[in-house]
Design a protein around this nucleic acid. Structure first.
Length: 599
RNA sequence: GGCCCCGUGGUGUAGCGGUCCAACACGCCGCCCUGUCAAGGCGGAGAUCGGCAGUUCGAAUCUGCUCGGGGUCGCCA
């Protein structure tokens, strides 16, 4: 028998009880004849007292204890003497007066202490993840993730969704992300691919009459990593039959409010989740995943400055580019050094540069403004009228700083939306306790792919156009809007979904537009299209990043913090040292010969 | 693939051309100590400064390359 309670449990009401506790030695305070141990497990800390007078043997043994040793202690729970309470601990009014001590396991000196505040290099943490995860914050994150999953499952089951697992070993569908592949021993030269998402499988389940499916699905993508991207991640994957877009959105709203309410009931979650079209999001925020907790909307200055006399603007406008800006309120006093920092920031987002325009706080209004009230590299190149027009269009006033970026539409949008996020952080405009979910709807079905010089599916090839846009498939593919939607939270894309195409004619047009040959279509989608020939219900669904929502709920800024064993940016697991070589025997069995890459 | 930042005892940092065979804090080791809870006191061990090459009379410090970590653009249907 190892324990009667966990370390975090004992309270004053337990005083007098003889109990056994087990856990890790968090800290030892040795006063000679009296030794204190903070005994730790997942539930908390308990102070254990070893007294030389009353428990000579246990006290002697306690002197050997070191950090992270695993021990079992038997003793009596006792109220602490007056003035000796520790208000920082939930167990701080009691202590365990030890009578017996058993050392269950010794520990090497740990590579770092089990403390939340420590700032250890990620690689060291991952190499010793089993120690890292002992930190209360990490356990809290694991628990939070568990609770989110539980809340989601409870909600989905309550809405008549069936949880179904789908294969991890399947087939490569070379489109979108790079696949992780697994060689087949039985079929030399052939490979399985790990799913980038269970997309076709869940649609097959709809054809199978499942009606409503969900799964916590592992998804694998062999692409470069980011703070919010790991090579494998978990999606809350769902699909519903006989639904329209609004039916899916209703479920999503219910799901996410339920999850937040379960794990962070104090958070402000405005409902219903607002709907914003893709076009509106791009126009107002220059991104399809805006953080709508604060304003600072992005304006468009292209027409105003196209003939302003400033060469950069004129050139960009002439070549069909965009000139866009945001207003940093009250930031006119930004120093050269501060604006230089912002210039570096937008450069790292791909922009050529950034043009600041400071409007003096000493002027009463933009109309009263003179050249002397403006500080900007463009001041001497454009007229006062242009400066005023820029300020008015941007909605800037005295004391404000206008930040202008010029370039191609896509580059400007990336840079200015990143800059907006950065300024939002700097000025602390976003309330961390407000969760502003947002549905972005009416995405275009296709986007132009310069590399392939053709149309590509914005989401995936089974996403249905809006019924009213079906005719545009022939005349103007770029204008076709889809029954395509994203769920966005505080500037983070949580997931995408769509109503799927079940109309054969439309499906063929889409394949044609994307430039898939009939052979490619058969190779990649044959199984699903065949299924569709046997009675496919109208259906739609969504795939939602679990790691990201848990990250946001945990208040973390990196999904590694909410994944038990994540990988480094180079897709390496420092603990297992994965990936690694395999034996020659294994290679032979798999009919694989490793060619020196020459690197 | 591009760009930016980082790499000094176990951990986190300081040092940024000679006074550094490297400093501080925590941790670690030993001794003392019966009310601590980041215990305290005294003493001690531990890094050739990621690696390689170069500049220099002299390099932790400057340069180049390289490796590793982080962020980001591209990429992520």
């Amino acid at each position: 028998m190892y324990r009667d309670m966990t370390c975090g449990e004992p309270r004053q009401t337990d005083a007098g009880k003889v109990v056994t506790l087990s856990g890790w030695v968090h800290r030892r305070r040795d006063h000679g004849g009296l030794t204190f141990i903070d005994l730790r497990d997942y539930s908390g800390l308990m102070q254990v007292v070893f007294n030389e007078d009353s428990a000579r043997e246990a006290h002697a043994l306690a002197g050997d204890l070191r950090s992270e040793w695993v021990v079992k202690v038997k003793g009596t729970v006792q109220e602490r003497r007056a003035g000796a309470d520790n208000p920082d601990l939930p167990t701080g009014t009691v202590e365990l007066i030890a009578s017996d001590l058993t050392i269950l396991n010794r520990s090497e000196t740990p590579p770092f202490e089990v403390e939340d505040e420590l700032n250890i290099a990620d690689e060291t943490r991952l190499r010793y993840r089993f120690v890292d995860l002992r930190r209360p914050r990490m356990y809290k994150n694991l628990k939070l993730r568990h609770d989110v999953i539980q809340a989601a499952r409870t909600y989905m089951v309550g809405e008549n969704f069936l949880e179904i697992e789908t294969p991890i070993l399947l087939k490569s569908t070379p489109e979108g992300a790079r696949d992780y592949v697994v060689p087949s021993r039985v079929h030399p030269g052939e490979f399985y691919a790990l799913p980038q998402s269970p997309q076709q499988l869940k649609q097959l389940l709809m054809v199978s009459g499942v009606d409503r499916y969900f799964q916590f699905a592992h998804c694998f993508r062999d692409e470069d990593l980011r703070a919010d991207r790991q090579p494998e991640h978990t999606q809350i994957d769902l699909e519903m039959s006989f639904v329209e877009q609004e039916d899916v959105l209703q479920i999503l709203e219910g799901l996410y409010t339920a999850m937040v309410k379960e794990v962070r009931p104090e958070l402000e979650v405005p409902t219903p989740f607002p709907r914003m079209t893709y076009a509106e999001a791009i126009e107002r925020y220059a991104t399809d995943k805006p953080d709508v907790r604060f304003g600072m909307e992005v304006c468009r200055l292209t027409d105003i400055v196209a003939q302003s006399g400033f060469g950069v603007f004129e050139g960009v406008a002439k070549s069909g580019g965009a000139i866009r800006a945001i207003v940093a309120p009250g930031c006119a006093d930004y120093t050269r050094r501060q604006t230089d920092e912002l210039i570096e920031f937008v450069k790292s987002s791909g922009a050529q540069g950034l043009i600041p325009m400071h409007i003096s706080a000493d002027v009463s209004s933009v109309d009263e403004m003179t050249l002397e009230d403006v500080r900007s590299p463009i001041r001497n190149h454009v007229s006062l009228d242009v400066l005023r027009a820029v300020a008015n269009e941007a909605g800037a006033g005295p004391g404000d700083l206008i930040l202008i970026i010029a370039g191609t539409e896509s580059v400007v949008n990336v840079a200015i939306s990143n800059l907006r996020g950065e300024m939002g952080r700097r000025l602390e405009l976003a309330d961390p306790n407000t969760f502003n979910f947002l549905f972005v709807v009416d995405f275009p079905l296709f986007e132009w792919d310069d590399d392939r010089n053709g149309w590509a599916a914005m989401h995936h090839v089974f996403s249905s156009p809006r019924p009213e846009d079906a005719d545009l498939l022939d005349s103007d593919p770029g204008a076709v809007l889809g029954q395509l939607y994203d769920l966005v939270l505080n500037g983070v894309e949580l997931g995408s979904g769509s109503i799927r195409i079940v109309d054969r004619e439309i499906q063929e047009k889409v394949f044609q537009l994307i430039g898939h040959s009939p052979e490619q279509v058969e190779e990649r989608f044959g199984q699903l299209l065949r299924a569709f020939q046997y009675g496919a219900p109208p259906h739609g669904g969504m795939g939602l990043g679990l790691d990201r929502i848990v990250m946001l709920l945990a208040g973390e800024e990196n999904i590694r913090e909410v994944i038990a064993f994540p990988k480094t940016q180079a897709a390496v697991d420092p603990l297992f040292e994965a990936p690694g070589a395999i034996t020659d025997e294994q290679l032979k069995e798999l009919s694989i010969r490793v060619v020196d890459s020459g690197g």
